[in-house]
């Protein structure tokens, strides 16, 4: 199966700076007892396990050969740490979709959690302080793409190719970039963004005018700088990439133990 890359980004922890009164610098802070009952992690096994691994490594609990492809033993140790934290009441909730993470953060149920950049932007557009916190251990990155289903032929196949061409032609890329994702075809996306937008989202420059979300709401006031800085700064400090592990089945089962614990 081959995918044409369309989108990628680097994720880190999101926090509510108005409800946390100290500096957050490490993934380990997610399990800090100070945030007992106010932390959250995403419940999608393949991504959640990576966040968990970033945390365990930062805490010095587990050392990994390759976080992108863990051994059974590494998985078991990681899950054991998470189960202890869950039993101690560290977590308020787990989220599965983008918008759940927004709601948890916006309602103040959670003050620190693994989060995606556009979700942070969505919380902010409600007038609530929320920060996409760069951490010393680096980011967890992911990518996505679109592929062609094998039963396509003739007109359908042409339509599919046309869709992909359109997808990569810039409008979608600009739309994605404006949410804080990175389009895999940045040069075309650039054509659909203003210089100020490009400077804010990609180059880490201070915004000259208000930065609008894709649906036209003011997301950042003039003068704001993107959390984490420019594209190079952000993607330059990626610590690991999401991938399907060889031990995927084992990992999913252990993850389910964590959720049921």
């Amino acid at each position: 199966m081959t995918l044409i890359p369309t989108i990628y980004n680097a994720d880190t922890l999101g926090i509510r700076p108005d409800l946390i009164d100290r500096e957050i610098t490490s993934w380990a802070d997610l399990l800090d007892p100070a945030f007992k009952g106010k932390a959250s992690i995403l419940n999608i096994p393949s991504i959640g396990i990576m966040d968990a691994a970033m945390v365990c490594e930062a805490m010095g609990e587990v050392t990994y050969g390759d976080k992108g492809n863990m051994t059974q033993e590494e998985i078991d140790k990681t899950i054991a740490v998470m189960i202890d934290a869950k039993k101690a009441g560290q977590f308020r909730a787990f989220w599965k979709s983008f918008d759940e993470s927004v709601n948890l953060m916006a309602s103040g149920e959670v003050v620190i959690q693994s989060m995606w950049s556009p979700a942070v932007a969505a919380v902010r557009s409600k007038g609530i302080a929320c920060k996409y916190q760069p951490l010393k251990e680096g980011y967890r990155a992911w990518g996505g793409g679109i592929g062609l289903a094998k039963h396509l032929s003739g007109l359908e196949l042409e339509a599919a190719y046309e869709y992909i061409d359109w997808y990569l032609s810039g409008w979608v890329g600009a739309y994605l970039n404006r949410q804080g994702y990175y389009s895999a075809a940045p040069e075309t996306a650039k054509k659909f963004m203003s210089e100020d937008e490009w400077g804010f989202w990609m180059e880490g420059k201070a915004a000259e005018g208000d930065i609008l979300s894709p649906d036209g709401k003011v997301m950042e006031k003039a003068g704001a700088v993107r959390d984490g800085g420019s594209y190079e700064e952000r993607m330059g400090s990626v610590a690991c990439w999401n991938s399907v592990m060889d031990e995927n089945k084992h990992m999913v089962r252990k993850w389910n133990e964590f959720i049921a614990a």
Partner: peptide
């Protein structure tokens, strides 16, 4: 218009 799913009212 900018309110969320929970209190407080915005």
């Amino acid at each position: 218009e900018n309110g969320g799913l929970t209190f407080p009212m915005n």
